[in-house]
Design a protein around this nucleic acid. Sequence first.
RNA 1: GGCGACGUGGCCGAGUGGCUAGGCAGCGGCCUGCAAAGCCGUCCACACCAGUUCGAUUCUGGUCGUCGCCUCCA
Length: 463
Amino acid sequence: MTLRLYDSLRRSVHDVEPLVPGRLGLYVCGPTVYGPIHVGNARPFVVAQTLARHLRRTGWEVRVVSNLTDINDKIYAAAQAEGIASVALAERESARYLDDTSRLGLGRPDVEPKVTDALPEIIAMIEGLIAGGHAYAADGDVYFRVADFPSYGALSGQRIDEMQPEEITSKKQAPLDFALWKAQKPGEDAAWESPWGLGRPGWHIECSAMAMSALGEEIDIHGGGIDLKFPHHENERAQSESITGRPFARTWLHNGMLRFGGDKMSKSLGNVDRLADALDREGAETLLSLFARAHYRSPLDYSPASLEDARKSNDRLREALRRAARVAGTTAPAAAGPLAATAAAVDARFRAALDDDFATPEALAALFELVRTLNAALDAGPADPADVAQARAVLVDCLDVLGLAGLAATADGPPAAAVALLQEREAARAARDFARADAIRDELQALGWVVQDLADGPELQPA
RNA sequence: GGCGACGUGGCCGAGUGGCUAGGCAGCGGCCUGCAAAGCCGUCCACACCAGUUCGAUUCUGGUCGUCGCCUCCA
């Protein structure tokens, strides 16, 4: 099966043709670390990590690179507001970003470069741009000459003559020119040496430099939020292609925005839910399920109702896995029954859906088909344990791609007190004292355990 | 104002020129002491107006509306 992805530059879905057969390099723009990230910021991370999991499962060798921008105007501002050194603030927020995203349980990108570690590459690239006539130094600053890059605007669909840029700053030669290097300004407590004096890189150059450094001059896939398309990715493209004369990214991958209360979730609007808070409240699985429910390019509604839906669909998956585990035992996967056949078909459909522009909703639908078939088989009577084990294995395997394998985890058993109550309830039921039995069920509920009377006896599950 | 995306059933959310998306919720049934879980059946669609077509939710044009970008932004 061929991997197909939507390329923002070509504005269509196309077959992915890797630079090296069997291998894919993926660069995703990470955060500027000036404060805690919100749930929306997590979307590109989740898309990249889950896409990589799918690709690895289907035989690709994948290298994910995602940067931390730890030099930026906002970092100076935030540090000043707190009265601490900007370097200290960036380090603290970098660590916090790594902690927060790690809690999603999707692992880490293979490489996570920081701007502060990439100054030599950045400076070399700026020198190259100046040498090639694509950029010019001006009194400690360096600017990229946009007029020098004919296809500027092609990625974002902006036309240079239609753009209404801010008024020209004194050192720029043209309004659209953007900074590659900025001279240190008063109040900025950190600066780096360069051929143009003390200063720091502009916003866009670091991604070009770090992407090339980690993945080469041409990269397979470059991703990020769609709000980065302009100017960030447009500028990255201009810089990179000016210096190499080759396409920078073979596929530009952009995820849609998270909507919160009808608007894009963003720090500037203030309608944010911090990722750490959301993880505390909802847990990683609910958030990951929510992300998977919508196609990565679509806007995604983040609301109590959508979280509730995500939680409940996880419950359904968890319940099916639990039922299957009771029957499956430790049977070796040598199954060939009808359920195993369905499982195989669903696995194929799951992979095909993700290969087709990473259609997680369709992939999820395939899994629910297997859930329904599995439940029906379990309802129908004694099921072949090997078949059930096979179906369960496929479910777990597929869910793992989405970071949801934890739904198969067996919870810690109930405490002795709860077990005792359950036994008491069984005695009451045997005596047909249903009032007593129901009262005990309420007590168990209060302890956090739900009773289910199954065909082969009662079972306690975490509420 | 410019560029782009999109408008699907009670809600969320896929998809397709004629053939079941899926989840949640509702209704009926089975199972159950009851409940939960599950299964079966079922109601509720493709913003509006034209056009193309044997046939459009699916293509074309227009209208209205929503969202994103054009400034920091995942």
